[in-house]
Design a protein around this nucleic acid. Structure first.
Lengths: 197, 197, 197, 197
DNA sequence: CATGAATGAGATTTCATTCAT
DNA sequence: AATGAATGAAATCTCATTCAT
């Protein structure tokens, strides 16, 4: 019967609409403006409908973050598709992270703050593991490194440096809003250069 | 007269107690648990007493942050006192920042998030300027650099790299709670080495 | 379906109950005793219920006044129905105003003080325009006046005199509570006589 | 001893300053902005000082009103001094009331609303009796009236009409802020003319 | 005489969440 | 599956008033 399907589709749609609306509110009015009522108004359903799709407000935020991670990973994949050179691939990953954080500032901040609130981020957001692996994989295969079979420690070190410098630069930019974009680019590029060698 | 003194001291004490209580609540129960009522309970005074000392909740948070910046700067001064070598001094500054952020995680996070919420952080917290200058001053006088009168751009670049990598590493550690301290140390050290040359 | 109707009726009832309770409190305990909490207690609902029906306290007062104006106008209509003589009609209008102000002293006072607080009374309470027009219409058609096509100024003058004397007498009675009703009647009657000629 | 005198004078000054400050606040910021704290700030004394001069806030308002009545009466006296013709004198009294109410809108409104709240205005504000007598005295001696020894009823009637029309016109002007001053003048003049004959 | 400090009580408003229907 | 209605709890803030000093 098509009925069941139709219902299923509509259910999925509402679920998606809730998340879309929540993200939209956060982007336009800030995290503190997000309330169940505002979401309900936005999707033009009554509040309890939201509770049929999500246990509570927290669950919505978590799911929003999960989708953020997914988006990030899929963008990395899209941008690195067909690129073979590991160095270039690493650059692409980090640049994609940088751009994502800048384009989706509110979501990125949410992902960070929800992550911090988790007891175990990697369990709540397995995508974090995936992303980490992606970065590490590229480092491992960098020509300057692959020869000498980088020790796990050195690898972890480089990986942490990568991620820290990008996230750090992002944060510093959120914090002081007047940093010259050209300089940002340069800092990023230098950092990658350093890691590569 | 001793009376005036006693009163003054008691007033100062209440002021300090409010801040102490606020910080304590934030540390133990998180930022969202902080309310005027909770503070009042904690210091065993009625709510309006708080309003005699601070205009509103926001003002308490701002003052908390300001004291955080002061502490950070005074610790930097303490640790770098008597050290002459610029490289060592830079290392001390960044290490002090790292230790502060790790010891006072909640306060450091508050400083960051309140900072982001400010239109103009440097105006609200002039200490940010002081700290920035301290870092830049050391970079400028690094032996490998002082010779060639580093261009302002290059200086800014190095400064941003320093600060980003430390703040980034701090954040990544808040986020993923299982990073090996030894590796953290190494990442930090490598980063400084890189900046120095 | 009866269900929908019942709900609708209950909603309308609560809305009306809020207004009724508010008016009741004002009558019995004065304007300053009116609070959202008191209303909630009175209707035996929780406070937020009131906020589902009215945006805020001000909105309740405004609506109370609006209903006051409506009552006044409908009473004028009721009393003047079937009466043709303009002089008699004018008398009825002013007497109805007088009786309304005396029977509903607290509401009348509220209508006056809320009106004063408005930037533009006639916009907030279009009923004021209606009432004014009703009075002016009768003056315009008074036999002694209709002949000579009263100038707009003279009309406005007579209208202001009417309204002022009635409102003034009402106020003076609120103020000094011991004025002989017979004298009040006489003052009113004299004033109308004067306007009519 | 001069000491006692000086103290007495200072005490009187503070008392007066409190009233002056209160009136000033009411004029500039409205009745609802009046608080003991605001007064204290204004006179640059601590709040409890006010309580040494006035039992409570209400007492301040009452005294403010009393002074308002006194001012009104003294202005009437000033303006009517040397004028003999009763008709002119009556006109002066009513015009003075009109001008007072327009110049001191906030105070006049306070006088009215505090008066309404009194159980017995004439007892709380004996000046009301004085003012009433002044009006009545002039009416009684109006040439057109003095001949026939106006019955007490008729006198009361005329007196009420006077006062009502002026107060009413004042109120209507507070209420609808766009009434032409020329028309106001005319209404007032007509009313007086009517009373006089 | 004057004050700083404190307080209790109360106001308005907002939110996440839950039932009965 | 969806809703309107309701609620409890909490938050921020203000005020008149009173003591101990």
């Amino acid at each position: 019967m098509g009925i069941k399907e139709r219902k299923e589709r509509s259910k999925v749609k509402v679920h998606a609409d809730i998340l879309k609306a929540a993200l939209c509110i956060i982007k336009l009015e800030g995290c503190s403006a997000l309330s169940m009522r505002r979401i309900a108004e936005s999707i033009e359903y009554a509040v309890p409908v939201i509770y049929e799709h999500f246990e509570n407000k927290e669950a919505i935020l978590v799911e929003l973050c999960r989708q953020g991670y997914e988006t990030l990973i899929s963008q990395v994949n899209k941008h690195s598709k067909g690129i073979a050179a590991p160095r270039e691939r690493l650059e692409i990953i980090l640049n994609t992270l940088w751009e994502f954080a800048n384009k989706e500032q509110e979501l990125y901040q949410l992902m960070y703050s929800v992550g911090i609130g988790c007891n175990n981020v990697k369990q709540t957001f397995p995508e974090v593991i995936t992303f980490n692996r992606m970065v590490k994989d590229e480092i491992r295969t960098l020509p300057a490194i692959a020869k000498g079979k980088l020790a796990e420690d050195r690898l972890q070190c480089k990986y942490l440096t990568c991620v820290s410098v990008v996230h750090g630069l992002v944060s510093v930019n959120y914090f002081m809003k007047d940093i010259d974009p050209a300089i940002n680019r340069k800092v990023l590029k230098d950092a990658i250069d350093h890691i590569v060698h």
